[in-house]
Design a binder for these strands. Structure first.
Lengths: 343, 343
DNA sequence: GCCCCGCCTGAATGCGCTTTCAGTAAGCGC
DNA sequence: GCGCTTACTGAAAGCGCATTCAGGCGGGGC
């Protein structure tokens, strides 16, 4: 058999001996078609393995059942879990979800938004902090604006600055403050903080919340005690190692992210320190895996799944006035075995 | 400002005072355009926040720079890591990657393939075992066939039965056998196996490889010692718990997947058993996190990233004869602290 | 000075589909 | 039996873009 390209609606119509219009209607059920004709069309379509060309269809006005989710890195459990929530709701609404990773490259983010927009996806969801550079955010905005005006839905999760769209925001600042309080209550007075890139608003908020609470308690946090690393397990490992080689004098390490905390735990173990006997470690997010670590990680539990669900719901809900709807979600400190009282 | 739909090429052309054709050429650089005209077009495009309509463009013949990756669950580190490899190579080739999770639902898989096909994606990659039901596989095949004939590229990772497309296959059987040998060498003679759904070829192969090697060594593996659970952390936890409540008499537990092994580790801990002092535990895949567990997990290390890279390369490489190209990749036993010698 | 050639530009065509719009045949009331 | 409604069906018009085909214009060769 000759390799032949996709069958078109015209092929189907011809095979069934009807017009294009009738074939289209029979296939989509958009208008009544006499049964025997409809059967012939369906039969022919099956025979030819016909799949409508989504491009032609979209071009002709039909709307898409696809929503695009753009995040920094799908393999990061934080994003994966949020995405899970999105998918749950999307599924209930008979929507298909496609994920993309930007690896924190603004250009790539723009590229994905652009193709999603070009494909006229039903909705575009952005997860994760935006970029410091106002130019990028502006570019993103101009990309999104016509999309929204054209009927596209947009929502973001934990990204606030500059984008005027519906948002679900975890209360990073309050969560970090609560964690600080909990750690103070355990008797800790000397802290170290492992952060990701400061340019990410999420990071900035968490550090600020943590620092503010310490300040309020009269406990200092020197700049030397705040180490920046990549927003990954290895970043946490490197930052912790850095701290250790410089001589760690803290009794407690707060990582702004569970993923980084995992790296920190590994670094401490490799240095022969035991947690929490020698040092306490706390994280943020409560990604699923941290319960299975030894010791299980103390962290600020964010309802990650719900973050995604809410965002999807927001995007799906009609918003006639186009007012910006913001949904804040609190985190909760969960004390586990990685932190202990200071004797 | 009136909410107005997307600007079209015609709008740009009019604003720039040139013809459609010229605007198109200026924007795409497909043909020389006099500098001052080109500048006017670019200027107008910027002004109007013009984004070409991907559908119209694709319909008019331009090919897409998108590849679709379909797997069981993106939040599973196995798939996430393979996907990472795919993205690396895709990026080198200036391709954008979109991920989708089927959650092991054949219908959903079909739906994703269908929209990817409809969107005329440059390539479709399937990661993970297929389904037992030959009807589904056949349906998938009829969906894929015209796509391939129409110039689409398809490759699969660790999925072999029935799909006649390029494939990258980890040597599950040999890997499991090697693991059995290693565990036998440690002196173990009584084993338990935690498996996922047997209908998945990956699972079947790993169990078979493990069993064969034991048989060869004259060590029995009773059906009672093989417990099936969901292919997740919780599935591993449940299966292990089941085993424990029934009275575990094995000295070593082999989980067909690291993810399940993590669950098993948790169940053992919750039962007050210590690893490897009381029981040894081994997994399969070597997903990144297992190095950070306590104890670090003994496992069969698969080059997960490379699995993805190879698949993407395969899909990208011309294949004039349309012969099925199969690339097998071996795993390697990595002994870590979760397994110990039997005294 | 004329012709030919090359370089750009614009008009027009078609990609595959949905959707009017107009038309035909059947069905109904009288 | 005629006119009118009802119920489908088919022809045709785009959707937004890339691209082919014909020019138009200027420059170089003779």
């Amino acid at each position: 058999m000759q390799p032949r390209p996709h069958a078109t609606l015209e092929d189907v119509a011809r095979a069934a001996g009807v017009s294009l219009a009738t074939a289209s209607r029979a296939l989509n059920g958009t208008a009544p078609v006499r049964p025997h004709l409809r059967d012939r069309v369906l039969e022919a379509a099956g025979q030819l393995a016909y799949t409508p060309n989504a491009h032609a269809r979209a071009l002709a006005g039909a709307s898409h059942r696809t929503v695009g989710v753009i995040c920094h890195d799908v393999s990061d459990p934080y994003f994966a879990t949020v995405a899970g929530g999105i998918m749950r709701v999307a599924d209930d609404n008979d929507l298909l979800v496609m994920l993309a990773s930007t690896f924190r490259d603004p250009e790539r983010e723009l590229a994905y938004v652009s193709i999603l927009r070009a494909e006229r996806a039903a909705a575009i969801l952005l997860i994760g902090s935006g970029f410091e550079n106002p130019d990028w955010e502006r570019a993103l905005h101009t990309e999104l604006e016509p999309y929204i005006n054209g009927g596209g839905r947009v929502a973001v999760v934990s990204r606030h600055r500059s984008l005027r769209v519906d948002a679900v925001l975890p209360e990073n600042r309050a969560g970090a403050a609560a964690m600080a309080r909990a750690l103070l209550d355990l008797g800790h007075r000397r802290f170290a903080v492992l952060t990701g890139p400061r340019t990410l608003t999420t990071v900035a908020d968490r550090v600020a919340g943590f620092r503010d609470e310490l300040t309020r308690a009269g406990v200092p946090l020197h700049t030397d005690d705040v180490v920046e690393g990549a927003f990954t397990r290895d970043g946490g490992y490197a930052a912790m190692t850095d701290l250790l080689t410089r001589g760690l004098d803290a009794t407690c390490v707060f990582a702004v992210t569970d993923v980084m905390a995992i790296g920190a735990l590994a670094a401490l173990r490799d240095h022969g320190l035991s947690v929490p006997a020698d040092v306490s470690v706390a994280g943020f997010d409560d990604i699923p895996i941290v319960r299975d670590l030894t010791p299980p990680l103390t962290t600020v539990a964010l309802p990650l799944q719900q973050l995604g669900e809410r965002a999807m719901q927001l995007a799906l809900t009609e918003n006639p006035g186009r007012r910006r709807r913001i949904h804040r979600m609190a985190g909760e400190v969960v004390l586990r075995a990685s932190t202990a009282k200071v004797p």
